[in-house]
């Protein structure tokens, strides 16, 4: 794809452990509410959310609802994503009065999450919105702070953090690359 020298920051095991910890934290913060809705941001966030839901089911014995959200049309910088097709969003039974955890792979400027929160409003008034990310790479441009973080990875702007998820990429890894 680009002429970058990749460096693995998180291995498959690291990712598994981070997700297990986040799952426990989500349960702790939400007192194992069975109304809990995990909303994955397309594309990789959806797979992270599904795995968190599977973990929660294993730990607590109930399976939280997993929704999907494509906040593309709510972005303030559509140029970033205009080359990609928009994907259907689906949150079964909506979010009215329920605690919601937005799940994404990488947190960077915060603009996707701002757009996701606005897009989420169309699905009802959540009792609370929290944010879980696998990697927080810094460089926030908006006052957004994640509630659950897999790993803080300080980066330079010219670097790229690529999250590889088995369901899409064939294997699990978090890799550091460079802009060409």
């Amino acid at each position: 794809m680009t002429n970058e020298i990749d460096r693995v920051l998180l291995s498959q095991d690291d990712i598994r452990r981070a997700m297990t910890r986040i799952s426990h934290e989500i349960l702790e913060q939400n007192r194992a509410s069975s109304d809990l809705v995990l909303v994955g941001v397309h594309t990789r966030g959806v797979h992270v959310a599904r795995r968190l839901a599977a973990n929660i089911e294993r730990i607590e014995g109930f399976s939280p609802v997993v929704g999907t959200l494509d906040p593309r049309l709510w972005r303030d910088d559509p140029d970033v994503a205009s080359g990609q097709p928009s994907l259907p969003s689906d949150i079964p039974n909506g979010v009215d009065g329920k605690p919601v955890v937005i799940v994404d792979d990488v947190l960077y400027t915060g603009r996707t999450i701002r757009a996701a929160m606005e897009a989420l409003l169309d699905f009802g008034r959540a009792s609370r919105i929290q944010l879980a990310v696998l990697v927080d790479r810094g460089h926030r441009e908006l006052p957004i702070r994640p509630d659950f973080i897999g790993k803080n990875i300080p980066t330079a702007r010219g670097e790229r953090v690529l999250v590889r998820i088995a369901e899409i990429d064939g294997d699990d890894a978090v890799v550091l690359g460079y802009e060409d």
């Binding site: 970033v80 205009s82 990609q84 792979d105 990488v106 915060g110 996707t112 999250v163």
Partner: peptide, 11 residues
């Protein structure tokens, strides 16, 4: 990031 391959543009 490179939006077209959907890897890491978000965030």
């Amino acid at each position: 990031g490179d939006a077209s391959n959907g890897e890491e543009t978000k965030s």
